[in-house]
Amino acid sequence: MAKFPSVRWFDAVREVFNGDESVQGGGGGYCNCVAGMKVGKDIFVLTFEGVECTDAVKADDAALDDVDFYLDMAPADWREMISNIHSNNGADRHHTLNTLDLEREDGLATSHHGDQYREDLFFRYNQTFQYFFNASARIRTDF
């Protein structure tokens, strides 16, 4: 049981994701970027290298200057997404990163630097990020 949000939770998801070869093909695969996760005021930075998510650390607001992009949602919205993933063994169409991005006026993925090239990594690697969060269906989450 890992509490969301925490480094322990992201590490548990990383372990499942990194050990699942099925997400490394079929449109998944190599992904090289640094992505921020903003859960209300809590900030986490995930590093994706090759086919793995190699690191998850807790960070402060300044770290968001350096990430390629970050996903920004209120804690209740994160909770709803993760609960939905758990209930359906993967996000239903109302809770995919794509849908959540469309439903937000400023989008789900954003950045401080405004560099389109880096921001668009969210779409280039979208399936990998979806596979990553879908992997959370296989751990027990406490909120």
Binding site: G27, T96, N98, D120, F123, R124, N126, Q127, Q130
Partner: peptide, 13 residues
């Protein structure tokens, strides 16, 4: 749709 979108994102880049 999701996979074509991902491919298209490379062309966009």
């Amino acid at each position: 749709y999701e996979h074509v979108l991902q491919d298209k994102a490379r062309l966009l880049t």
